Simulated assay, not measured.
Amino acid sequence: MTTMPSDFGQTGAEGIRDLVRRATALAPIATYAEEPCPPISWDTIAGAGWDLAGIVEDGEGATTRDLIEIAREWGYGCIPQPLLPTILSKRLSPVARAADGPVTFALPLGNETLIPFGQLADISIATVLGEDGGTLVPAGEGSKDSLDLVGRGIRSTAAATTMTVEAAREVALVFAAESLGGAERLLADSIEFAKQRMQFDRPVGSFQAVKHKLANAAVAVESAETALIWGSQRPEQAFRSAVFAVDRCIDAAEIAVQVHGGLGFTWEAGLHFPFRKFLSARRVVDSLQRSHG
């Protein structure tokens, strides 16, 4: 057993990191999160084969640990494109694998289902994950999901995608890993803000109380990473580790808002985009745990 991603995972994560950082130049998330044209187009993603990054053939391909590393790097950018649902769908469904465009799934959510990126006109839903069979169906009608603004999902009364326990575990871990990347971004942005924001002729980051807050956020992020690595190696603990990891990401997001002071509550600061994504991931992981745990 190794806690490190394979060479495939490391190379994939490095490629996604480079793609995200070149496309966004690490501009504030608020500058592109709601734009109709995301900084990375789907043609760029599919043209490079990133949508097929999760496929395993003849026992060769990405491990769950690899997917966590890739999702983590993607989450750092908080980019409104359905890369991760498509990677998972094409990994876990032969029917989805044959699709040219993006693919998602319908997640159980109480009396409704949540369809990540269901607002996109060209996206399809895989009806079965983790075993042969199923079909691809259009997203159909539904109400816009008001929580995860980047996820561009819809809430629908359509049937949830049928998943094996193994598939549900991977979905939970990948959603949590995307949150980890977002939490790392919030921590980095908060550290930079604390260096630049002046109060009493000193950077606010020089104050002990702010240092302690940022240290707590760093501990939360590292704890989330450890939990996800553990969950990738102990599948029976996947839901537990995903819940713990997302909760720590939420902790880090709350601290980021506090460090930004009054600015942290403004739309322009953009902290709410990853924060809302963490809250959405929490409800997804909870639902998957209830239905498959």
Rank of each mutant, 00 (worst) to 15 (best):
Q196T: 08
G182Y: 01
T127Q: 13
D100W: 01
I115Q: 03
Q208Y: 15
A252V: 00
M1F: 15
S143N: 08
E178Q: 15
V56A: 07
G133W: 04
D43A: 11
A168I: 11
Q233P: 01
D58C: 01
A172C: 06
T226S: 08
H292K: 06
M1C: 02
G231N: 00
T226G: 13
R282E: 02
D51Y: 08
R155W: 06
L52S: 08
E69G: 13
I125E: 00
G59M: 01
R155S: 01
E166P: 05
A183H: 06
A106G: 12
L214K: 10
F200H: 07
G54I: 08
A183E: 11
T31F: 02
R240V: 10
A245Q: 10
A242C: 06
L19M: 12
H272C: 10
E166H: 08
I16M: 12
P116D: 06
E178N: 14
A46N: 10
T11F: 02
Q258H: 15
A46P: 02
T44C: 11
F200S: 09
V103C: 06
F239Q: 09
I68Y: 03
D100G: 05
R65K: 13
G77S: 10
L147F: 00
L187E: 05
G264K: 06
F8Q: 06
H260S: 15
A215E: 13
P28T: 14
V210E: 13
Q237K: 14
T2H: 02
P28S: 09
R21L: 15
E178I: 12
A121G: 13
A46M: 03
A53Y: 05
A126F: 01
L19G: 07
A183F: 12
L147R: 03
Y76R: 14
G49P: 08
P36S: 01
D286N: 12
I87L: 14
A139S: 08
S179M: 03
I250M: 04
T226A: 08
